[in-house]
């Protein structure tokens, strides 16, 4: 961990204005924003802890909680909403037995929502990790989840 934070800071030339990008990179590295990494960042860059915490809670892209192996992202953008995106979310909440924003007990899935992922024509859309699933219906939810089951 020591190095990766320093490397990331260096990549952005120790530039405080690049804090969003720096946090993004930390999140890519650890899948979330670990407390220890943020404290290190605060010390190294001389940014108050309170400011980093503000940023991490203001922007929805960041998670302060550890996330699961697979990220299930349900689109709730308007185009997906008018085609029943919320019903898909309900269905996923039932299947995974968690509410959005949470991780399954076995740590396999984290269920998140997003407002549009830029492929509205194929709504409702769900994305698991890097794979997109278009024209979702309730009955497609189970097979989709099974694919990432193990």
């Amino acid at each position: 961990m020591k190095d990766s934070i320093s490397i990331i800071i260096k990549k952005y030339g120790n530039d405080k204005s690049q804090l969003v990008s720096i946090l993004q990179d930390i999140q890519i590295e650890y899948n979330y924003l670990p407390r220890s990494a943020l404290d290190k960042l605060s010390k190294k860059m001389g940014i108050p802890q309170s400011h980093i915490y503000s940023m991490a809670t203001f922007f929805r892209a960041f998670s302060l909680k550890e996330r699961g192996k697979h990220i299930v992202n349900v689109c709730l953008g308007t185009a997906c909403h008018v085609r029943g995106g919320e019903l898909i979310l309900d269905s996923l909440e039932r299947q995974l037995d968690i509410k959005r924003g949470n991780t399954t007990k076995d740590g396999n899935f984290t269920l998140e929502t997003v407002n549009c992922m830029g492929c509205c024509a194929t709504g409702p859309v769900v994305k698991i990790d890097e794979e997109y699933f278009g024209h979702m219906t309730n009955d497609k939810v189970e097979p989709m989840i099974k694919k990432y089951g193990e």
Binding site: G77, T78, A79, H81, N115, C116, G118, C119, C120
Partner: peptide, 12 residues
Amino acid sequence: DEGDPGAYANEG
């Protein structure tokens, strides 16, 4: 930043 949820013209 194309924040409008349900628009992807800028993305395209």
